[in-house]
Design a protein around this nucleic acid. Structure first.
Lengths: 140, 140, 140, 140
DNA sequence: GTGGTCTAGACCACA
DNA sequence: GTGGTCTAGACCACC
């Protein structure tokens, strides 16, 4: 798993790390049980402070996505199919999704294009998770 | 259009205003040419600082959603169907959508549920923009 | 509310702050809506770093006990009677309680003394929360 | 006495060992004079480092719960009813109990439920120490 | 080796 | 004014 950080981005660095890890989990690049780089390792890789990486892992831990052990470092704790989503999360997440989709609508993206983007992204994650289904060639 | 602001929310107030306006445009409650409340008016209505409202309008202006004339105030500049979305926007927006959808995947929402949510939200906006049953009330 | 910090304690400072706030909430010294000292204020009061206080508030926020707003600082979000305890919390808490009570048993405290301590503590919190019930004089 | 260690737990392993021993003493599974497994034995059983087990025994020794003889190994030094609890211990322990109970109060557990939990735990230890029904199985 | 805690001090975002 | 982010560097706990 190769993480890219953009120090110029408005998004805080720890948030970018968190986002990349979440995406890697969704895409199956990181599976439950997989080891994450140590905070120190990531820090030197990106040329950033350990505390910044620690904060990113802190967020992921609070979200239940990783589990940390003093000796062995951090590992992925859950992923697609591990546990059903909590209702509270879905509610809050839906609101964020609505705002994001509204932005696309307001900016002129047509409805079908928006839905197609969503489908494409979800299918991309799914395909990368389990590239076993070769029964796919037509666009549908 | 009735905007609701939650001063307790973790989201900055200017962001909440911006989000509500974007959603209103997507839902057709605000259409291109519609007048927005003045910065001062909104500030008084919500009991918040003028600078906060000004910042919200500033963001909307940078996004090209509103246009401000010193004399006549701010009006909605674009909306669904006005102009096609710019490619740069779509690219950047897709990345944000991917992150948001990844979060749902990682947290255990199944793929179809995620797509269903997206479809439902887009259709909701669409229906509110152009209600298919043309039975009109007095309020409209 | 007067918080006391012991820099010599084995417990991390941020944990001590968190514990004192929790106790103050249980005792009704801090009620939902009440303002907490700002991170900077607490930091100078205790002669510690802002980041340390911020971490304490971070923990409290993750526990849902406080809510933080950029402008107005942090306020108590929940307290006795606000919301029923979540089942997951009770399970995890019970295990910690069992370990703590086991320690007393093993060290020679007799069963009734242990229970009496628990009752006394809970009643103390209760009395400080609502010192209105004057119908109490006998030991029972 | 069967000790279960969870290497994934947030609690340090030495603490888990110490906690399980304390609970076993409270429940009468380990009685004063009983022999503990050797440091090496436990380390092999759990597949953990000897130093980790040694640290756990160290803590128990400092608490006065076990006594170690270089020749004969470690034995339980005290238990329920052996000696009355020291005042210093009770004071310090009460403070920890108050913090733990405060957490439950603040999170919405009602007072009677908290006391009931305490009683149930103490009674459970008591019952396991001296089962009131003298119907004995072959295993006992 | 791992992660956790804390400091001193800086800069930015929010209102 | 408030809190959030980040740095550089230190020390400690765990194993």
């Amino acid at each position: 798993m190769q993480i890219q950080i953009d120090p110029q981005s408005a998004a805080p660095i720890y948030q970018q790390i968190r986002d990349r890890v979440v995406e890697a989990v969704a895409a199956g690049e990181l599976r439950p049980g997989d080891q994450l780089a140590s905070v120190r390792q990531l820090a030197v890789d990106f040329g950033i402070n350990v505390a910044t990486v620690a904060k990113a892992y802190d967020v992921l831990r609070n979200e239940g996505l990783i589990r940390t052990n003093h000796k062995s470092g951090s590992v992925i704790a859950r992923g697609p199919g591990t546990e059903p989503a909590e209702e509270a999360f879905v509610t809050e997440w839906s609101a964020r999704l609505a705002t994001l989709l509204a932005e696309a609508v307001a900016r002129g993206l047509i409805d079908t294009a928006i839905v197609d983007h969503s489908i494409a992204i979800v299918e991309d994650f799914s395909a990368r998770r389990s590239p076993s289904d070769p029964a796919k060639d037509s666009t549908s």
